[in-house]
Amino acid sequence: MPLVPPVHPFREAVENGDMDAVAALLADDVVFTSPVAFKPYPGKAITAAILRAVSQVFEDFAYVREIANPDGRDHAFVFTATVAGKRLQGCDFLHFDEDGKIDEFTVMVRPLSAAQALSEAMGARFEQIAQEAAAAR
């Protein structure tokens, strides 16, 4: 019988919709790199706000694969979701610092039409995201 590895705390928090637990896993100096924005977003407050908004934009979200570096500091979480009727595939690339907190969070998505739908949906919420981040500081 194959061994089933335990569910990673990040994946468990996302799958349970527990965005407070996701935020607790972020380092204060985390850098979030969006699949649709040119410039990375530095800091826990803005990253947590972006992730909360994404959790509201994605429909039918599911992780389908997890790939981990043996040292446990790098993980890739492959997912599927729907945005505005467009089915997408994506991957969350996470790096964990020496304290086990996420200090790099990079997201990639495909196809282009789904990335564009994601960009539009997130762009419509960006004022709310910025306000939430400012209030959390």
Rank of each mutant, 00 (worst) to 15 (best):
P35S: 06
R73F: 07
T80P: 05
C91D: 00
N69Q: 13
E98S: 08
E59K: 14
D29K: 10
V22E: 03
D18M: 08
T80C: 05
R87C: 00
P6I: 08
N16Y: 02
V64M: 06
P2I: 13
A114N: 06
V54T: 11
R65K: 14
A81P: 03
F105W: 15
K39N: 07
A84H: 02
V4T: 15
G43L: 11
R73N: 11
D97I: 00
E12Y: 09
S34N: 03
I102G: 01
K101H: 11
M19G: 02
M19Y: 05
T106V: 14
E12D: 07
S55T: 06
D99S: 05
D97C: 03
A62L: 10
D97V: 01
E12I: 04
H75R: 13
A53G: 14
H75V: 04
F105D: 08
K101M: 09
V107M: 10
L3V: 09
P42N: 05
F93C: 03
V4G: 03
D103Y: 04
L94R: 02
A48P: 02
A23W: 01
R65T: 05
A115Q: 14
L3D: 06
S55Q: 06
L51A: 01
L26H: 01
V30H: 12
M1P: 13
V107L: 07
E12K: 15
A81F: 01
I102T: 00
N16P: 01
P35K: 06
R73E: 03
L112F: 13
V78H: 04
T80M: 14
S34Q: 12
T106H: 10
D29P: 00
F96Y: 09
L88D: 00
M108F: 15
V64Y: 11
V83C: 02
L51R: 09
A84L: 04
D97P: 00
D29Q: 07
K39F: 11
D74A: 09
T82L: 10
H8G: 06
F61G: 11
L3N: 08
G43I: 12
V83M: 03
P42H: 07
V83A: 06
V57M: 06
F38P: 02
P5S: 07
H75Q: 08
A49G: 10
A23K: 05
Q56F: 14
H95C: 01
D28W: 02
L88R: 00
F61Y: 15
N69W: 04
A76V: 13
M108I: 15
V57C: 05
A53F: 02
A48S: 08
L26S: 01
P42R: 06
M108K: 13
Q89F: 08
S55K: 09
A21L: 05
P42K: 10
I67C: 11
V64I: 13
V109Q: 13
Y41E: 10
F105Q: 12
G100P: 03
D97A: 08
T82H: 01
V7R: 12
V107T: 15
F10V: 13
M1Q: 08
A27R: 01
